[in-house]
Design a protein around this nucleic acid. Structure first.
Length: 345
DNA sequence: GTCGCAATAT
DNA sequence: GATATTGCGA
């Protein structure tokens, strides 16, 4: 897509306003478009560069983004004026690309056209950014970065579609996104991820931007719903207990689509910790399976506050002699925090 | 690649 | 403080 660009040789940076003013004096439409296109390319290149520092330069990102938007809008306007048939094709296809493929349909800023243009450009350059280890870009399904882990992560939320916790997260994300409509899209999650370690807590200036970026940076939290935990415990039982079962085995037994070894591993780690804490009070029980019995609710009879994990997660679907149905319902409500709620008992 | 632990983030 | 994610060595 090489264009013979007048600006390419002696390009002198100027403000967008200046540039637009200069453009407006030109009569040659193709030249206008060419110049606009060139400037946009430069800005997008710039965006690529500052992308690595987006955390430190959130406003810079905003500015460049805005500039690109303005230029693209101008280009679209330019085409519309003199070539209506073209623009009628151009805009719809543009919107298709940016919103449909990105799965960001609901994310529309105050200026839909601008966003679309920007989004499409963002999509372009974001594809060039390599990811170290990214699995969480649920908001941009088409992002190739994501596809590298799509097998295990891309569908990570399918089992949770009906999960209130997940929905809460989604709403939270949506909220954040809508506050800064274009920002989430323009930031390759890979970069976010790699930067997320730098100054994650209470970073500096543009908190909205930063928060929003961070939101998408870190992997979406896996909510261990009671049902999910029930499967987990179930698998543990089959495998001979938490101490002998391995994350991979558990995951395979659980048969939960999108669940990863890491998530199971993490859950198992915590589970073991809790069991360990509880174990001494149950000296009578020696075997692994008996630990699982604990998880089914027997422990709750002891009233031990040390078994939140066991109380909350396993309450549902298992005989839980030690708990009232009310307790179970509480857990249902609190989804992600069922263990904690149990702990609060 | 998998696992377990510890550090870190939310 | 509880829970989930990530890093890292084994």
């Amino acid at each position: 897509m090489e264009l013979s660009l007048d600006l390419s040789l002696g390009f002198v940076p100027k403000t967008v306003s200046e540039f637009l003013g200069e453009i407006s004096r030109s009569r040659d439409r193709s030249e206008k478009l060419s110049m606009l296109d060139d400037f946009v390319k430069r800005l997008e290149e710039e965006m690529r560069k500052i992308d690595a520092f987006k955390r430190e330069l959130p406003l810079c990102v905003l500015l460049v983004n805005d500039a690109i938007t303005r230029l693209k809008k101008e280009a679209a306007r330019c085409m519309e004026i003199e070539d209506r048939p073209v623009i009628e094709e151009f805009i719809p296809s543009s919107s298709k690309t940016s919103s449909g493929e990105n799965g960001q349909l609901s994310i529309m800023g105050r200026d839909g056209c601008e966003k679309k243009n920007w989004m499409s450009s963002a999509q372009l350059w974001s594809t060039e950014t390599k990811s170290r280890n990214e699995h969480d870009d649920w908001s941009v399904p088409e992002n190739p970065i994501q596809s590298q882990n799509q097998k295990s992560r891309g569908e990570a939320f399918i089992p949770f579609k009906g999960n209130s916790c997940f929905q809460k997260e989604l709403m939270k994300e949506d909220k954040e996104v809508s506050q800064v409509p274009s920002l989430c899209l323009m930031t390759p999650p890979s970069e976010l991820h790699s930067n997320s370690k730098l100054g994650s807590k209470g970073s500096n200036a543009s908190s909205l931007l930063t928060q929003s970026l961070q939101q998408t940076a870190r992997k979406q939290r896996r909510c261990w719903s009671p049902e999910l935990h029930r499967r987990f415990v179930d698998a543990l039982q089959q495998l001979g207990g938490a101490q002998v079962a391995t994350p991979k085995q558990i995951r395979e037994l659980m048969q939960v689509e999108g669940l990863t070894n890491d998530e199971v591993k993490s859950h198992l780690q915590k589970y073991r910790l809790h069991v360990r804490r509880v174990a001494p009070t149950n000296g009578l029980w020696t075997g692994q399976d008996q630990c699982e019995e604990i998880s089914k609710g027997k422990l709750s009879e002891s009233g031990s506050p040390q078994s939140p994990l066991l109380l909350g997660g396993s309450a549902k679907g298992f005989s839980c002699s030690g708990r009232s149905s009310t307790d179970a319902e509480e857990d249902e409500k609190s989804d992600c925090h069922s263990w904690r709620d149990g702990h609060k008992l």
